[in-house]
Structure formats: C-alpha cells, structure tokens
C-alpha cells in the first residue's frame, strides 16, 4: 500500500487571540515570535489515518508539503511518527497560491512520485480554512474522493471510509487510487517515541523545485491564483456583558435564574 499525505505548516491555531494581528497593507497575518508553527491539526489526523493503515497492512507513507522556510522540526514530525519519506516543494514560486494553484503543484508532485494507492489530506487548513485542496487534487488526478473521514479501512483495491455527516456517518466505498480528506472525528493522534524522533534525523527531506515536477510557472503559487483576496480584517467584538454577582457561587446562580426570568429569557 503506497500512501501519500499532504501537510501544511501553519501558525499554531491554538494561540491566544491576543497574539493575532493582521497587516492591512498586505492582507496577511503578522507572525508573532511567541506563536509557534505547527502542522495543521487536520493534516496531523491525515497522517494518523495513513499510519493506522500502515500498522494494519504495511506500506510506504510519503509526506508532501509546500511552502518556503518550512521548519524542519515541524514538517519532519510525520517521519518521527513512522512516515517513510518527506518531499518538500520549497520555493518562493510555490507560495501565495490559492487552493487551486496549490493543488496543481501538489498533484504534479504526486504524479512524479508515481505509485500511490491512497492520498490523504486534512479536511481544511487551520489558517485559510479553505477546505478545497483535497478535492482539487483528486479532480486533477482524476481519482475518486471521500471528504471528512473519521475512519479509513483499506481492503484489496478498495477503500472503505466512514464519512462524517450532519447527523451521523455514512460508510462509503471507492476503488483505489483515491483521495480521502480526514477530520478530527478520526480521534487522537499518536505521539512520537524517543527512538522514532531520533530516527527521523536520518531521513533528510527531498526538495523539489517547480522545474523538478514539470509545473507551468503560470499555474503555481501567486501566479496561478483564481481567487483574489480583497480584504482581510478582524471582526470587532463589542458586546457588553452584565456580570451577575453574589456572595457565593450558589447565590450567583440563583441571581442569574432570577435575572433570566425577569428579562423573559426563560
């Protein structure tokens, strides 16, 4: 079973709001030194989905990421967990793209990798929240996709996916090769063992430039965008909260109940 996982390096989405700033001139987020970079959490779950299949059936996991200044201690994490190979599309020409131009580059890299049965992506990246790269890769490669998976099982030439729906889930089956986007419902991701972490030292990432994957310069990165960002801004929160007081927590609770009845909320 040959598997490919696409991951994105993002600023830690768990960072407190107070450290979040936007540069209105460039419509981009201003990185703050205290906020670390991480792998987008859904992408970590995509890695976990692939690892689970590798645990059960064996196989090879190739991880691909795209960007510039990719921190090795961030993007190498899947290697420490048991992935086999890391390919970095690391070039200024790759960045500034939208879902489509990013998917175009990733699909080109996947074609170059050649053999694959399953491709995993996170359901959406924690920064752009776009949620489209997976579907676009599948379309470019002409393979079936299943979105928002919580369980993935590989069975001879097919993959069975529990796909999250609004009120439960569906069990969907598609032939491989196929692309699966993975959601947090997959459950907890594993932690790297010390030996796994140290072993990743020996797995140096492979760097590919646009020419290496035969990408047309006009279709990658900012040049290949179909979507234009007109504006990026922070919504203003200005609700005035009335704090209900009281001697003890029990008093506060009773006062809250009285208040809610008084203003006819309950």
């Amino acid at each position: 079973m040959n598997m490919i996982v696409c991951i994105k390096q993002v600023l830690d989405p768990e960072a407190p709001l107070s450290s979040f700033k936007i540069d209105p001139a460039t419509n981009t987020m201003v990185p703050v030194t205290s906020v670390p970079f991480v792998i987008s959490p859904f992408d970590e779950q995509a890695v976990e989905a692939a690892l689970k299949i590798k645990d059960a059936k064996g196989g090879k996991i190739t991880v691909i990421s795209l960007g510039v200044n990719l921190l090795r201690d961030v993007v190498k994490k899947p290697l420490s967990l048991g992935a086999d190979e890391l390919i970095l599309l690391e070039d200024p020409a790759f960045i500034g793209g939208d879902s489509w131009s990013t998917a175009y580059a990733l699909a080109a890299a996947i074609k170059k990798v050649g053999q694959f049965d399953l491709i995993f992506c996170g359901r959406q990246a924690a920064d752009s929240d776009s949620g489209q790269v997976g579907a676009c890769i599948a379309e470019i490669l002409g393979i079936p996709q299943v979105s928002v998976a919580k369980k993935v099982e590989a069975i001879d030439g097919k993959v069975k996916v529990d796909k999250v729906t609004t009120d439960g889930y569906e069990v969907v089956e598609v032939p491989t090769p196929a692309l699966i986007t993975v959601s947090n419902e997959l459950g907890e991701v594993r932690f790297a063992t010390f030996k796994g972490t140290m072993a990743s030292k020996k797995k140096e990432p492979i760097i590919w430039k646009p020419a290496d994957i035969g990408a047309e310069p006009a279709k990658i990165g900012a040049a290949g965008r179909r979507i234009k960002t007109r504006k990026l801004f922070q919504p203003v929160r200005d609700s005035k909260c009335e704090i209900i007081g009281g001697e003890t927590d029990e008093d506060k609770a009773a006062n809250l109940a009285k208040k809610l009845v008084e203003v006819k909320l309950i």
Partner: peptide, 14 residues
C-alpha cells in the same frame, strides 16, 4: 471567516 474565525477575508474571482 478564516484563521479559525479569528479573521474575515473578502474574496472575489474573475
């Protein structure tokens, strides 16, 4: 909404 709801983006396409 982008950045997990921390910001809003306005997009357009041709």
């Amino acid at each position: 909404p982008v950045y997990g709801g921390n910001a809003r983006a306005v997009y357009s396409m041709e």
